[in-house]
Each structure stands twice: as C-alpha cells, then as structure tokens.
Amino acid sequence: MTDLLSRPAPRRTPARPAEDRLNRRGSLEPREPGRPRRSLVVALVLACVTLMTLDHVNDGAAVDPLRRLVGEVYGPVESGVSAVVDPVVAVPHWLRSRHDLASDLDRLQTENDQLRSELGTVDYDRNRLQEYDDLTATAESIGYALVPARVIGIGPAQSFSRTVTIDAGARAGLAPDMTVVNGRGLVGRVLRVTSSTATVLLVVDADSTVGGRVGRSMKVGFLHGRGDLGQGARLDLELVDQTYVPAAGESVVTWGSQDGAPYVSGIPVGRVDSVYSSLRETTQRAVIEPYVDFSALDVVGVVVPSGTTSDRGIIEADGSLR
C-alpha cells in the first residue's frame, strides 16, 4: 500500500512540470494528483449552464436531438430490462394468501351489493320525482291547493274495502271528506284522520260512489267502484239521462259536491271503456277505466282549502310551493 501511494509522486513530478503552478505566495506548488484544473471545472460548469439555457429557450428544441439519440440507445435497454423484471416483480402477486383473496372477495361483494342497491333505487327515485312533478302540475291544472303525501299502507284484500293509509294527517291540515288525487287523476277521499296519518277510501272500493260527469256532453251520473285494484280495475258509470249513450274514449270528471266535500269538481277520473244498457234496470251503464293505477299508488295529493296551515309544504293552486 505504501508502495502504491508513493509511486506516482516521483514519477509524475519530472514528467509533468507544466502541471505545477505558482500559488498566491509565488512559490511553485506541485499539482495534487487527481485534482482538476480550474479551466476544466469552469468549462464543465459552463457546459451545464449552457445546456440548461438551451433547454430553457425555444422549448428545448436544441436539446431534443440529443435526447432522441440517448433515448435510441437506452430506450431498448430499459425496455429489455423491464421485460425481464416485470415477471419477477409480479411474483408476490401470485403468492397472495387465501385470506387476502377472501377479504378481497368480501370487499368486492360489498361494493357490488351497494352498487346494485343504488341501481335498484335509481328508478324508484326517478319515478318519485316524476310523481311530485305531476302532482305540482295537477295542482296547477285543477286549480286547488294540495298537501302532498305518500301511501304508507294498503288495506288487505280480505277486508274487501279498498283503503290506503297516507302519511299526512290532521297536523298537515287534513280533515275527513277531502278529495285525494295524484298526477293522473282522482284517487279517493279521506275517510278519517289521525294527527299524522289519514285513511283514504279509493274510488274503486265497492262502497264508493262519486258523482261523475261525461266531459263532452256534461251529462251527469254516478260512479261505483267494483273492488278490483289491479290493471283490470274498472268503475261503473250510471247516467241519470238514460237515453244518452256516451262514446268510448270520452273522458269522465268529477261532478262535485257542495262545499267541495267529499269531492271537488273537475277532477279527471277515467275514460269510457265500453257501454251497455241494462233492460231490467232501464239505465245506461258505462264502464270507466280509471286514469289512476291503484296497484302502484305512491305520491298523492289531498285537496285542501287554499291557505290551510300545514306541517309541510303545500302545493298552491298556481303550482308554487308554500
């Protein structure tokens, strides 16, 4: 080691006199081996600064050929090494434990369930929004103030009375014998109320009688329910004028009662499906197909006098919410 260290000095000193230089004190100072000349340092630093400047101006157009050149050399090497390394790097993924996989599966299943339930309620939410929209439009078109409510219970078929419970009651400004509508037409009337719920008798109930009027001829009659709820739900219209034969497709609206109880006038009920005459009873009977789908009731509106105080927003007759 000593030999190694001491050897360069005697050999270099005579061979490289030009490398020695005068120091500040004016004496000759042998250049330390391995120390860079100042000119070299300055040149390289200037080269760096020049490069940075070149790359800075003109968006590096001057350096791009150099980058291209180096990239052509090192690019293939890097991609080759990467191709070799990638399978090795992937090894830990093969060695994942069953526990990891099970927890992954759990997580994904939970996520999937969440997404499914979201997907399931999207249609429902959209329909609810549509129903509220329809209700607002209805309040505007029939010209009455409405308290919005949702159907929260449907009476069992074995009771043979077609009633539903809605989530608005006396606190919302409801009282018995108020008309209940939805976006399509007449639903029924309020039978009785509690402070927070109300029971509604649907017009399709067998005991329900509604005064109806055939829209085009203004002929009046009585609508009786048949007790069916589903798609086949029909009402029978018994006209007072027995000579009049309504045409199929004619619209039937409510006739109205005194003080708007139990039914306000001018609410669409349904349209004439077919007409037949009963010889024995000597009256014309028309079968009415109601506009409302009673098997899919959700959002309904209860007709209240304008200015009723309520625990919820009331849709006023002009369509505004109060």
């Binding site: 390289l44 630093v45 080269a47 760096c48 600064v49 020049t50 490069l51 940075m52 070149l54 790359d55 800075h56 590096g60 350096v63 150099l66 980058r67 050149l69 180096v70 990239g71 090192y74 690019g75 890097e78």
Partner: peptide, 19 residues
C-alpha cells in the same frame, strides 16, 4: 449526469443532473 438528463424518462431541463 448528462446521460441521466437525456435518457428516456427524463423531462427536466438538460444539464441539471450534469451540474
């Protein structure tokens, strides 16, 4: 440093690593 400045993934100003 110059190589590091110019080899493919690099996008900084050339000369920075060189310096």
């Amino acid at each position: 440093g110059l190589l590091l400045d110019l080899a493919p993934p690099a996008d900084h100003y050339a000369g920075r690593w060189a310096l």
